[in-house]
């Protein structure tokens, strides 16, 4: 069986800035990939290329053995979900309405959301700790609550590959851990795969088994988390010396 995500010789650029050249990686069901790099290194751009939202300069991306470019947006939406960075909503919609939009790929053209879709949406809200928020308006929520609404929408979409651009943005510590626990449990029990942009190498070490480092000049490194998350490599990545500390079986990296 072909891997969930298969990337070969990918070349991505924004304007004159090269994000990656000759990037190859595979992601199997159940695997969790962390993408690390400095601001502006192109982490978000790479993720939206992997999601099929913008074309790469060169290279090929296969999703479950089929080229990304040969699948319609509708087919793609059943396989992969994408969490973007927050933008405002000019029209006030309720939390439940927003979360139900995740059911779109599963509904026929003339279908309306039924009781099953509602049940899925309520379960997703409960999973991010927003039970009872259904009728609240999005404009009345805090940034962190809105981020959790976006995550609940993604859960409602129920894809097999989750591409998360800064899923922890605006979240406080307890919710950061809760969200990462939620996704890593899903990876274990439901065999989904995960690629996420993170800012904290310690969280990558704790929750991911694969790591992709984007150096910002087109160079990239991929490998198992244990090899990639090394103090020297990360010091070079961020351009700032880091010290690795192991305590209570967890790893943290402290900037000098």
């Amino acid at each position: 069986m072909s891997p969930l995500l298969d990337v070969r010789n990918l070349h991505v650029a924004i304007g004159d800035t090269c994000v990656c050249r000759d990037l190859s990686l595979t992601l199997e069901a159940g695997q969790r990939l962390a993408i690390l790099g400095r601001n502006g290194a192109g982490k978000s751009t790479l993720l939206s290329v992997l999601a099929g939202l913008r074309p790469p300069l060169a290279g090929r991306i296969h999703l479950r053995g089929i080229a990304l470019a040969r699948q319609t947006p509708h087919e793609l939406a059943k396989i992969r979900g994408w969490l973007g960075q927050q933008i405002g909503d000019p029209f006030a919609s309720s939390v439940l309405e927003t979360v139900l939009t995740g059911r779109h790929p599963h509904l026929g053209r003339w279908d309306w959301e039924g009781p099953e879709d509602l049940a899925i949406a309520h379960r997703a809200l409960a999973a991010v700790g927003l039970s009872g928020f259904g009728s609240r308006h999005l404009s009345r929520l805090s940034g962190g609550e809105r981020q959790r609404v976006a995550i609940a929408t993604l859960l409602t979409q129920a894809p097999q590959l989750y591409l998360l651009d800064e899923p922890l943005a605006h979240l406080d510590l307890n919710h950061q851990i809760a969200v990462l626990e939620l996704f890593s449990t899903k990876a274990r029990t439901e065999n989904i795969a995960l690629a996420l942009v993170l800012h904290d190498p310690a969280l990558a070490a704790r929750y991911c088994d694969q790591v992709l480092l984007l150096h910002g000049n087109g160079d990239s490194e991929t490998g198992p988390a244990a090899t990639m998350l090394d103090a020297n490599r990360l010091s070079r990545l961020y351009g700032h010396p880091l010290t690795r500390i192991d305590a209570d079986g967890r790893t943290v990296f402290i900037p000098a």
Binding site: P73, D89, F91, S93, T101, H104
Partner: peptide, 21 residues
């Protein structure tokens, strides 16, 4: 109309949810 609901929430999100934006 349902695609338009998604577009009102943002072009990229709509595309990720399967709308040929």
């Amino acid at each position: 109309a349902r695609e338009l609901n998604l577009m009102a929430g943002g072009m990229e999100t709509a595309q990720a949810l399967g709308v040929a934006v």
